[in-house]
């Protein structure tokens, strides 16, 4: 427990240092280049109490999480199938590698052309970014599965469904959960990026508007909101997941 407290304390120290650097930067460069932390937090508070933050947050949330869910489900399903069926795996692997190599910003541009500046473009961009990340984790997880255990399952006559639940799924979780965590963090960033370029009503759209008004404090306030969202996301989903993965690590064998 003291270790955990100490780690938390160091973490807070790091964040405090960042705040201090921000303040010093503000003092040196002036409010037109870098608004002060206090002013930014004030603006953020104003966004929340005037009811601007809520709806923007909801739009971005739907884009990011909706896009993430579609991309992750498709990626996992395709990855597992491709891992189990060798020809499909051989066919899909280079395609997904190409997809993985396309920078998200290029997808944003394409999505804006295909879907128009509003609507599906951000969610699509998130999905198409998440899909290959989750695909390769699922694919590698299936390829790296323990063949000896699969043989055992075959010999006892386990159905594909039972094998999947008892053997494959647990083996998949180790590579898949960290990939999902990475992909989820990406989802917010990519979603906001697509919104910035496409305008619209999400957080990204708001950032674009503030930028157009050259309102630096407003821009920073929205950015702070995105960061806060990422931290909440990390605390609620990823930290418990990391703890879960640690408990799955087998204890050292006795005897």
């Amino acid at each position: 427990m003291p270790m955990v407290v100490a780690r938390g304390a160091w973490g807070l120290l790091g964040l405090a240092g960042l705040g201090l650097a921000w303040q010093l930067g503000h003092d040196a460069l002036g409010p037109f280049v870098l608004p002060s932390p206090a002013e930014t937090v004030e603006r953020l508070w104003a966004l929340i109490v005037t009811g601007q933050a809520g709806p923007a947050l909801a739009v971005t949330g739907v884009n990011a999480i909706g896009g993430f869910l579609v991309g992750a489900l498709l990626g996992a399903a395709l990855g597992v199938t491709a891992g189990l069926l060798t020809p499909l795996g051989a066919t899909l692997r280079p395609v997904l590698t190409v997809m993985l190599g396309v920078p998200p910003i290029a997808w944003v541009v394409l999505a804006l052309l295909w879907f128009g500046p509003r609507g599906l473009a951000p969610a699509f961009t998130v999905s198409i970014t998440v899909l290959p990340i989750v695909f390769s984790a699922a694919f590698q997880g299936i390829l790296a599965r323990d063949q000896k255990l699969s043989e055992m399952a075959r010999v006892v006559g386990a159905s594909p469904l039972l094998s999947f639940r008892m053997l494959l799924l647990p083996q998949l979780l180790d590579p898949l959960l960290p990939a999902l965590a990475t992909a989820l963090a990406f989802s917010w960033k990519v979603g906001v990026m697509a919104e910035v370029l496409g305008g619209g009503t999400g957080i990204g759209g708001m950032i674009a508007t503030e930028r157009a008004h050259l309102d630096l404090a407003g821009t920073m306030a929205w950015i702070l909101l995105v960061v806060a969202l990422l931290l909440v996301c990390d605390g609620l989903l990823l930290a418990p997941m990391r703890r879960f993965l640690r408990t799955r690590r087998p204890a050292p064998a006795a005897g």
Binding site: K148, L149, E151, M152, A153, V156, G157, A158, S159, L162, M166, L167, P170, R248, P250
Partner: peptide, 21 residues
Amino acid sequence: EPRLLPWWPALDNVAFALAAQ
């Protein structure tokens, strides 16, 4: 080698063969 499922307790490892049936 025992070829046990490392994620499941001893009981479920044995029950696995029956579930398969």
